[in-house]
Simulated assay, not measured.
Amino acid sequence: MLGTDDELSYWVLVLTGPQRGKVWLVTAVGAYPYPYPQPEAHGFAEWVQHWKTHDGWWS
Results as ranks from 00 to 15, higher is better:
Val29Leu: 14
Thr16Ile: 09
His42Pro: 00
Lys52Met: 14
Gly56His: 03
Pro35Met: 08
Gln49Tyr: 04
Ala41Pro: 07
Tyr32Arg: 05
His54Ile: 01
Asp5Gln: 13
Glu7Pro: 00
Glu40Tyr: 03
Leu13His: 03
Ala31Val: 06
Gly3His: 04
Pro18Ile: 11
Trp24Cys: 03
Gln38Met: 08
Tyr10His: 10
Tyr10Ile: 04
His54Ala: 11
Val48Met: 13
Tyr10Asp: 06
Pro35Lys: 05
Gly17Asp: 05
Gln38Tyr: 14
Gln38His: 13
Gln19Arg: 08
Trp57Arg: 15
Leu25Asn: 09
Tyr36Gln: 11
Val48Pro: 00
Trp51Met: 04
Val14Gln: 03
Val26Phe: 07
Leu2His: 02
Trp11Phe: 15
Tyr34Cys: 07
Ala45His: 06
Trp24Arg: 09
Asp5Met: 09
Trp47Glu: 01
Val23Leu: 07
Lys22Val: 02
Ala41Arg: 02
Leu13Arg: 08
Ala28Trp: 09
Ala45Arg: 12
Asp5Arg: 10
Gly3Asp: 05
Trp24Asp: 05
Ser59Pro: 04
Gly17Trp: 03
His54Asn: 10
Gly30Gln: 07
Gln38Cys: 05
Gln38Asp: 10
Gly30His: 06
Tyr36Val: 02
Thr4Pro: 00
Val29Arg: 11
Val23Ile: 09
Phe44Glu: 11
Trp47His: 03
Thr53Asp: 10
Leu2Lys: 01
Tyr36Ser: 10
His50Lys: 13
Gly21Pro: 05
His54Gly: 05
Ser59Gln: 09
Val12Pro: 01
Trp47Tyr: 15
Ala41Gly: 14
Tyr32Ala: 05
Glu7His: 06
Trp58Glu: 14
Glu46Ala: 12
Val23Thr: 05
Ser9Ile: 00
His50Glu: 12
Ser9Gly: 07
His50Gln: 14
Arg20Gly: 03
Gly30Ser: 04
Ser9His: 11
Gly21Val: 03
Leu25Ala: 07
Lys52Leu: 15
Leu13Thr: 02
Val26Cys: 07
Ala45Phe: 04
Met1Tyr: 12
Ala28His: 08
Ala41Val: 06
Lys52Arg: 15
Pro39Thr: 09
Val29Ile: 13
Val23Lys: 01
Pro39Ala: 14
Asp5Ala: 14
Gln19Glu: 15
Thr27Gln: 10
Pro18Lys: 12
Ala28Asn: 13
Val23Ala: 06
Asp6Ser: 05
Ala41Met: 09
His42Gln: 13
Ala31Asp: 06
Glu7Ile: 02
Leu2Tyr: 03
Lys22Pro: 00
